[in-house]
């Protein structure tokens, strides 16, 4: 119990003092996870939209596969990316291992299936509503896809949020490919893991409190935006 009280006190002090090390860690966490999110959305949203609005042979299997990939274990993803990027790996020449870019790649692989699978469901529901009207209007497929993605944008924000939550909170993949190098690849989750193993539970908990606060703030902002959209019947 004392640890918790001490942790909150320390977290408060660290944030108030704008501790440069802490800000660097938070900044890198956000940079890595948001970059992974943007790339995942660029890949996952069109993919989800195509699967959601088309019928093809093997679609059921594709959906099961996409859903299964949502549960990819981060350490396995980290290991695979590590093998690809290691000096002897096929992409070793890029010298990306133990860099933020490697962490972005690992998190992108981790959350793209989440974005694709969840957006597929959202787009499919909206497509069911629009399909006959679009056929009647002869809307070409690319335009229909754009319209569905745009009209579902507030629901897709929740999808992006789920992806961001997964990325910012995972430790298994980034610690393997990033290496938790101070001032280079140390993010909040890897720092928490390190401080816990060092026995500095108060600092670990303080970082945890900061991480939780960021997650809560992002969630609240997105939900607020979604509620506003629902009030205006756009959601």
């Amino acid at each position: 119990m004392q640890d918790f009280a001490q942790a909150f006190g320390l977290a408060f002090d660290l944030v108030l003092a704008a501790d440069p090390d802490l800000l660097e860690i938070i900044g890198l966490s956000l940079r890595v996870s948001l970059s992974a999110l943007v790339i995942s959305c660029l890949i996952g949203l069109p993919f989800g939209a195509v699967v959601g609005m088309t019928r093809f042979r093997g679609r059921g299997g594709a959906i099961i596969f996409m859903n299964a990939l949502m549960g990819l274990p981060p350490v396995v993803v980290g290991l695979c990316v590590y093998l690809m990027l290691s000096r002897v790996g096929p992409l070793g020449w890029m010298a990306l291992l133990y860099t933020p870019m490697a962490m972005i790649i690992a998190q992108t692989i981790l959350i793209t299936p989440i974005i694709a699978a969840l957006s597929r469901q959202v787009i499919e529901d909206l497509h069911t509503e629009y399909a006959e009207q679009f056929r009647s209007m002869c809307v070409p497929v690319p335009m229909a896809m754009g319209a569905l993605l745009w009209d579902a944008r507030y629901s897709l924000l929740t999808v992006a949020l789920a992806g961001f939550g997964r990325a910012v909170a995972e430790v298994g993949a980034v610690i393997i490919v990033g290496g938790n190098i101070d001032h280079l690849t140390r993010v909040m989750t890897t720092a928490i893991a390190l401080e816990t193993s060092k026995g500095d539970l108060a600092l670990a908990l303080a970082l945890g409190v900061v991480l939780l606060t960021i997650s809560l703030a992002v969630n609240a902002a997105v939900m607020g935006l979604k509620a506003t959209a629902a009030r205006y019947a756009y959601a």
Binding site: Y130, Q133, M137, C138, A147
Partner: peptide, 23 residues
């Protein structure tokens, strides 16, 4: 064709018209 239950895009009134015109 106009359906019994109108299917309107989740956009403004003007944007619904603009969508049809763009087609």
């Amino acid at each position: 064709m106009v359906f019994q239950t109108p299917v309107l895009l989740r956009r403004s009134v003007a944007a619904n018209i603009a969508f049809a015109l763009r087609l």
